[in-house]
Design a protein around this nucleic acid. Structure first.
Lengths: 233, 233
DNA sequence: GGAAATTTGTGCGTATGTATC
DNA sequence: AGATACATACGCACAAATTTC
């Protein structure tokens, strides 16, 4: 009977097909904050119900490709920011400890330091200097100081001109910070030492002494990690 | 003029709240392939409609925490596998080229090699040897050879006992492979050289010569990357 | 500043596919 | 092997929030 014999090609659910189609479109556009058609229009366009569109959009939201605002509409976003949350989940699900995270950070930042030296000009060093001086000025404000410290390391990574490496470093800093914040019992006291280490790193970079710079980065990260470790429960 | 002044505490949509609540539950359980209550039951349990539950589940699916099978039910999964797809999206959205990916891979594998030497015993080296010999035996079968090559590098990383590092390396290998496959015009011819390089790496590891091992890894990765590069459009 | 139009959020009903007895 | 129960997939209607004129 029935030689119909469908090839048993179980097609993916509609919401997944739509999600992938929309993903292709968004990635090919490659623009963030671009307005997309409303759910209703997308439903008409792809000849499916709004429910299907909505489930597809939830997927894309989690892929870091769209965001939706009630009463406003749909906008594309850069998937870059999804990286740290994915890593965070892995760390928590598999109970990966902070020592491993710190170790990965050290590996990446040492490498970034080397690459930075291959691309840096004096203006890059000036920028690092400026950030570090702001940090000095913000000694009293813990949150601002932390943000500037983040910016220092992010900027150094960025000088290396490897965007993927920079993104990964950023996400590692994020999850390490999350990990630390979840366990911090008190804020570490004003860290003059860290600022001085930054200054020495900049000076060494200007001298183009890569071995010493890498070594300084390593020790700086180890020291600042120990500093936080002391304030954990 | 309305001193109401609501704290502007826009609560998140239900589907997001539910997604986060379920995520907490799943991560705290920390078990994969665990069966979850059906959509209907979850809807009752949290006193929301099934629509909300479904959208939350689409989010969790994309977070790599659940999978659903029609007619069967919901099961938890490990979020590990979400990493490479996120990176893939970043690479495509920001047009990050293969040279940068290969560079990150090199950084990570060199570091993993060093960490491997700190933890390895003879049985670990034997395992690498076994994999490499299988590769030798599968010279004719391109797909199998590629899979074994992947396994060689994955195993080496795993010996280092840094789970996060291993996961990142794996995801980088994945996206590099995707990138390559998308652009490969023909399969590279049987790569005897790669197998010999593996063998030499193992030998050097057994001698605990870390500097030389790292250097060999570096050259091996550079060579195999060049090999693929030749076959790209 | 307020009402209308637009957009996303939520609830419920039906269709369809899968496992199980 | 067929029937049944149960699971997810899909569609429509209404509510809530925001923008716009």
């Amino acid at each position: 009977m029935a030689v119909k014999q469908e090839p048993k090609l179980k097609r993916a659910p509609l919401y997944e097909q739509i999600a992938n189609t929309l993903e292709e479109f968004i990635i090919n556009e490659g623009v963030e904050e671009m307005r997309l058609p409303s759910e209703f229009e997308l439903a008409q366009q792809y000849q499916v119900s709004r429910t299907v569109i909505r489930e597809a959009l939830k997927i894309l939201k989690e892929r870091g490709l769209v965001s939706m605002r009630v009463g406003d509409g749909l906008y594309t976003t850069r998937p870059k920011y999804a990286l740290s949350s994915v890593m965070n989940r892995i760390v928590r699900f598999d109970h990966i400890d902070d020592a491993q995270i710190a170790s990965v950070r050290q590996i990446l930042e040492e490498a970034a330091c080397l690459q930075a030296l291959r691309h840096a000009d004096e203006r890059d060093f000036d920028l690092l200097e400026t950030i570090n001086q702001s940090m000095e000025a913000a000694k009293e404000d813990y949150d601002r100081r932390a943000a500037l410290d983040y910016q220092f390391h992010y900027t150094l990574a960025k000088i290396g001109k490897n965007e993927l490496l920079t993104d990964i470093i950023e996400s590692i800093m994020d999850i390490l910070q999350d990990y630390i914040k979840r366990r911090l019992t008190s804020y570490p006291s004003g860290n003059q030492q860290g600022i001085e280490e930054h200054a020495l790193i900049i000076k060494t970079l200007r001298q183009r002494d890569s071995d010493k710079a890498v070594s300084l980065i390593r020790n700086h990260l180890k020291a600042s990690y120990r500093q936080y470790k002391k304030n954990m429960r």
